[in-house]
C-alpha cells in the first residue's frame, strides 16, 4: 500500500486504482479549476487595499450589485412559487402531454444562453409577440433582466422538488384528513413543511445561477450604466478597457458571494436529507 492510500483511506479496499484515479482527478482539478481560480485572488493582491475598496464600491459597481442581487432574488422567488406549482402538478396530477412538458422543463439547461437571450429580447421588445401587449417596457429595462433570470432559473426548483414529492408518503396526508383536517390544512401544515427544505434548496440554486448569469441577460438588458448593467457585464467592460485588476476585484467579490451561497446550499441539502430520512 502506498503512502497516499494509507494516509487517506478510512477502510481498506481490495479495489485497485485508488492512487491513480485520485491522483489524476486532483491533478486535473488543480490545472483546470483551482490554479486558475487562485489566479483571481493573487491578482487582487497586486492592488492596495484602498484601490481594491474603491474598485468594488464605485457607484456604477454598487448599482450593478443592486440590480444583479435584487433581479436574481425576484426571479428565484417567482421560480419558487411557480416551480412548486409545476412540480406538484407534474407529480400528482394527470393531464395530456404531461411527459412532453416534463421533459421540456430542462430546456433552460440545454438551450444555449445566447439563443435564450435573443429569443427573449425579440419576444419582450416593444414590437414583440408579448411586449406589444404591455403598456410598459420590459426589454432594455431591469424588468428584462428579471425575465431572463426567471427563464434560466426555471428548472432548479422543479427538479429539486420532484424527487421529494415522488417519495412523499400519502399516509401522513390521509392521517391528517382522518383526524379532521381540511384539505387546505393538510396541504399547508403537513405537506408543505416536508417540502420546505427542498424548496429552499431549489430557490438558492436558482438564485446562485442567476447571480453569475451573463449570456441570456446581456441581450435583453439594454446594459445602461447605473440602470440595467449586471455585474458580470461590468467585469467584461473593465477587461475590454484593459483594467485587469479592476475586473478581477469585481470577480473576487462575486466569487466570495458564490462560495458563501455554495456553503448555504450544502447546509440546506444536509437539512433536506435529514428531513427526508426522518419521514421515511
Amino acid at each position: 500500500m502506498s503512502v497516499a492510500s494509507r494516509l487517506l483511506l478510512k477502510r481498506h479496499s481490495v479495489l485497485p486504482g485508488f492512487n491513480l484515479a485520485l491522483g489524476f482527478a486532483l491533478l486535473y482539478l488543480s490545472l483546470i479549476v483551482l490554479i486558475p481560480l487562485s489566479a483571481a485572488f493573487f491578482k487582487t493582491f497586486t492592488l492596495s487595499w484602498g484601490a481594491f475598496a474603491e474598485a468594488v464600491t464605485a457607484p456604477r459597481v454598487l448599482a450593478s450589485y443592486r440590480l444583479t442581487f435584487f433581479a436574481s432574488l425576484a426571479a428565484a422567488a417567482l421560480n419558487a412559487v411557480f416551480g412548486l406549482i409545476t412540480a406538484w402538478v407534474l407529480v400528482r396530477y394527470e393531464f395530456p402531454f404531461k411527459r412532453l412538458i416534463d421533459a421540456l422543463v430542462d430546456l433552460p439547461f440545454a438551450l444555449p444562453t445566447a439563443v435564450a437571450g435573443i429569443a427573449l429580447t425579440a419576444l419582450w421588445a416593444q414590437n414583440g409577440w408579448l411586449g406589444h401587449w404591455l403598456p410598459f417596457k420590459v426589454a432594455f429595462t431591469p424588468l428584462g433582466v428579471w425575465v431572463a433570470l426567471v427563464f434560466i432559473g426555471l428548472p432548479f426548483v422543479v427538479r429539486t422538488l420532484q424527487p421529494v414529492l415522488e417519495q412523499l408518503p400519502h399516509d401522513l396526508e390521509e392521517a391528517a384528513a382522518t383526524l379532521g383536517a381540511t384539505r387546505a390544512q393538510a396541504l399547508a401544515r403537513v405537506v408543505f413543511p416536508q417540502l420546505l427544505p427542498a424548496l429552499l434548496t431549489g430557490f438558492a440554486l436558482a438564485f446562485a445561477r442567476a447571480l453569475g448569469e451573463y449570456g441570456s441577460v446581456i441581450f435583453i438588458a439594454g446594459n445602461m450604466p447605473m440602470v440595467s448593467e449586471i455585474t458580470p457585464l461590468l467585469i467584461i467592460t473593465k477587461l475590454e478597457q484593459y483594467d485587469y485588476a479592476g475586473a478581477t476585484a469585481l470577480a473576487v467579490v462575486m466569487l466570495v458571494a458564490s462560495f458563501a451561497l455554495l456553503l448555504l446550499i450544502n447546509l440546506l441539502q444536509a437539512w433536506a436529507r435529514r428531513r427526508q430520512g426522518a419521514t421515511v
Binding site: I35, P36, L37, A39, A40, K43, A208, L211, G212, E213, Y214, G215, P232, L233, I235, I236, L239, Y244, A247, T248, A251, M254, L255, S258, F259, L261, L262
Partner: peptide, 15 residues
C-alpha cells in the same frame, strides 16, 4: 457550476 461563466473566462486571461 457556482462560478460565473464570465469569471471562468477571466481566470484564463489572468494566466
Amino acid at each position: 457550476f457556482s462560478v460565473s461563466p464570465v469569471i471562468a473566462g477571466l481566470i484564463y486571461v489572468l494566466i
